[in-house]
Design a protein around this nucleic acid. Structure first.
Lengths: 341, 341
DNA sequence: CTGTTAGCGCCTTCAC
DNA sequence: GTGAAGGCGCTAACAG
C-alpha cells in the first residue's frame, strides 16, 4: 500500500502506538529497544500495536534524543570515475560494511572530489550528520585533515600518513608497506638475483618511500641506487621507464615494481627487449590487482588485506564513537607467489 | 583547535549564541537562515556571536524541526567493485552531485548488494534518514521496488522499467534505448550494409529488448532474426559469440553490438577471422565506454548522456521532496562517429 | 522586526 | 514493571 506519497498524512508515532496498546509512550520506547524493564507480555502487546498501526521509528527523533545518528560516513576524496580501474576502494568498502553489520550503524559513502563538495561534506560532519568518519584516501598536505580534526568527531584514516602528525587525534589502519616490500625483496634474494632494480611509483607518495626502504633493508648492495627509478602508477609509465632502465643497466636480473600496473608495463618492456621472465629477469609486482593473475607470466606480487582493513576501520570507528581513544592498527601484507619471480 | 575529541564538553547551541548576542533563540535561527525578517544590523551581531562561540548548527535538531534531513540517498544495488569497474555509475553520480549542488541537500551513497544490506537500507529509508532516494540500478522483478514504494518517500529511478509498473509512484529518468539503437542502425544502413547482425546483451535485460526494437525498426529485412544473438555484457562474450556467428553467417557486413565491451570482443573475433573493419564489416558499439575511443579501430558508438541523467534525477528528487508529483524524463542518445562504422 | 511559546519524535531520569 | 514529565536543538506560529 503506497500510502500517501504526497501530503504525508502525518506519520505514526510512538504516541499512536501507546494509545493503541493502552500503555505509555515510555513503555513503547522501552519495548522497541528491548529493555528488560518490560514484561515479555507487554512487549508482545506493544509489538501487536506496532504492526496494527504500521509504526516505523523516525530516525530524526531518535537521533536528537540519543545524540547519535547511527551512521558512519565513508569519505572518498578522489573522483569516482577515475577510480574505475582500481578495485581497491570497493574492497575496503566491503570490509567497512561487514564491520558495521550488526552494530546498527549504517555506512554512508560521501564523495568529495571537488573543493565545493569537500566543503559541503565538512559542513555536514561539523553538524553531526554522521557519528564518525572513515577517510579512505587520506593525504598529507591536504588541509582537509586539519578541518576534519577541527570537526571534532571520531575519524579513522585508511592508510599511513608519514610522520603521523595526527597521532592521538585520528585512528589509523594500514598495511605495512615496509614489511610488504621486504617480502618482495626476499623473494628475489633467495632466488639468487644480484642485480636488482626498483621501478617505483611517484616519489611524493608515502607508500613509495616505505617500499623502497623495505627493498633496501633486505637487498643492501644488490639494489644499486642507480637502478632505482620513479614513474607513474600505470603500465605506460612502467613500460617506458623499464625500457630506459634496461638500456642503461643491461645486467639487471630482477625488477621490483611499485604496482602491478607498473609491473605489467615492465613485462612488456622485457618482452620487447627479448628477455625471458622469470628465467632472465624476475619481476615482482605490488597490490595483487586483478590484472596480476592474468598477466603472462602470472605476476608474483604482494597483497594487502583490503577487506580486513575496512573491517578494522569500522571497528575503530565504533570504538571511538563509544568514547575510546584513537589508536593505530597495522596489518600484514602477504606474498602471492606466481610465475614471474 | 581540535577541541575535546572525547567527553564532548556539551556542544554550543543557538541558546548560547542567543545569550552571547543578547537576542532570542528565534532571532538567531532566523539570522542563520538568512530570513529577511531580520535587520542586517542584527544579523551581524548574531554572526559575531556565532564566530565568538564557535557555534555549528546541529543537523539532528534541525532535521527534527523541519521534517527533512537535507540528504538524498543514492542507492546502488550492485557490488561496489562493479561500480568502480564501470564508469557508468561514476558519471551518473557526478551528475547527481552537480544537480544537488546549491540545493542544500547532500547526496549520500548507499550500497546494498547483499540481502542484509538491502534490508538495512530499506529500514533506514522507512525511518526517514534521507528525504528521497535515487535508485541507480532498478530492476523489474526485484521486490526491492515494491518495498521502496511502501517506504512512502520520494523515489527516482535511473533507467527504464518495462511496462512502467510504478508510473505515478516513482519518478524516472532514462535515455531512450530505442532511439539510440535507431541511430546505430541508421549508421550502417546509410553505409549500404545489407547483412546486418546484432550481438546483444542478456535477453532478460530491459535495455536489450529496446535496442533490438530500434535496430529492427530501421533495418527491417536487412537484420535477419537468425543473425540476432545474445551474450554477456563483457568482451569475452562478444568474442566467442561473434566467432560462432561468423561461421554460421559468413556474409555478415555489419555488427551492432549491445555494449562497447561486446563490440571489443567482436573486433577481436573479426580480426581473428581475417575481416577488416570497417571495410569488410562495420561495427557499432553502445555506451561510449572509455575503451571505445582507444579501440583499434576506434569504435563508433552510441553515447548516453549519463551526467545529465544524474543531474535530472537530482532535480526530480528535489521536486518530489517539495511535493511535486512523480514524472518521467526521457533523454536523447547521441551517435559518436569514429572509424569502425 | 523581535520575543514568547509550542512543538518535531524519541529517550530517560524520577517517582510510583 | 510502568507512567509522568522534561529535554535533545532547532523552527514556526503567534503576539507584540
Amino acid at each position: 500500500m503506497p500510502q500517501g506519497r504526497r501530503g504525508a498524512p502525518r506519520a505514526v508515532t510512538i504516541a499512536d502506538v501507546a494509545r493503541e496498546a493502552g500503555v505509555s509512550r515510555a513503555t513503547v520506547s522501552r519495548a522497541i529497544n528491548d529493555s528488560d524493564l518490560v514484561t515479555a507480555e507487554t512487549k508482545r502487546t506493544v509489538q501487536e500495536a506496532i504492526t496494527r498501526t504500521g509504526f516505523v521509528m523516525n530516525a530524526r527523533g531518535r537521533a536528537l534524543a540519543t545524540g547519535r545518528a547511527e551512521t558512519v560516513g565513508v569519505l572518498i576524496t578522489e573522483p569516482l570515475d577515475e577510480l574505475f580501474d582500481d578495485p581497491t576502494y570497493g574492497r575496503v568498502l566491503r570490509g567497512v560494511a561487514e564491520g558495521l553489520l550488526g552494530s546498527g550503524f549504517l555506512p554512508v559513502i560521501i564523495q568529495a572530489s571537488s573543493e565545493s563538495e569537500r566543503a559541503l561534506a565538512l559542513r555536514s560532519f561539523g553538524r553531526r550528520s554522521v557519528d564518525a568518519v572513515i577517510h579512505l584516501t587520506p593525504y598529507r598536505g591536504s588541509d582537509l585533515l586539519g578541518s576534519l580534526a577541527g570537526a571534532g568527531l571520531p575519524v579513522v584514516l585508511c592508510g599511513q600518513l608519514v610522520d603521523s602528525p595526527y597521532e592521538g587525534i585520528f585512528s589509523t589502519v594500514y598495511s605495512d608497506d615496509v614489511r610488504g616490500a621486504r617480502l618482495a625483496a626476499q623473494r628475489v634474494a633467495t632466488a639468487g638475483r644480484h642485480q636488482v632494480a626498483a621501478v617505483l611509483g611517484p616519489a611524493d607518495n608515502p607508500a613509495t618511500g616505505d617500499r623502497l626502504r623495505g627493498y633496501e633493508e633486505v637487498l643492501g648492495a644488490r639494489l644499486d641506487p642507480a637502478r632505482v627509478v620513479h614513474t607513474r602508477w600505470d603500465s605506460a609509465g612502467g613500460l617506458t621507464t623499464t625500457a630506459r632502465l634496461l638500456v642503461a643497466h643491461p645486467g639487471i636480473d630482477a625488477i621490483l615494481a611499485g604496482s602491478d600496473r607498473i609491473a605489467l608495463g615492465a613485462l612488456a618492456a622485457l618482452q620487447a627487449a627479448g628477455r625471458r621472465v622469470p628465467e632472465d629477469v624476475a619481476v615482482v609486482g605490488f597490490d595483487d590487482h586483478a590484472i596480476a593473475a592474468s598477466a603472462s607470466p602470472p605476476l608474483t606480487t604482494i597483497a594487502q588485506p583490503l577487506v580486513e582493513e575496512g573491517r578494522i576501520a569500522a571497528q575503530l570507528a565504533l570504538e571511538m564513537i563509544n568514547g575510546a581513544d584513537p589508536r593505530t592498527e597495522v596489518l600484514d601484507m602477504r606474498l602471492v607467489p606466481r610465475l614471474s619471480a
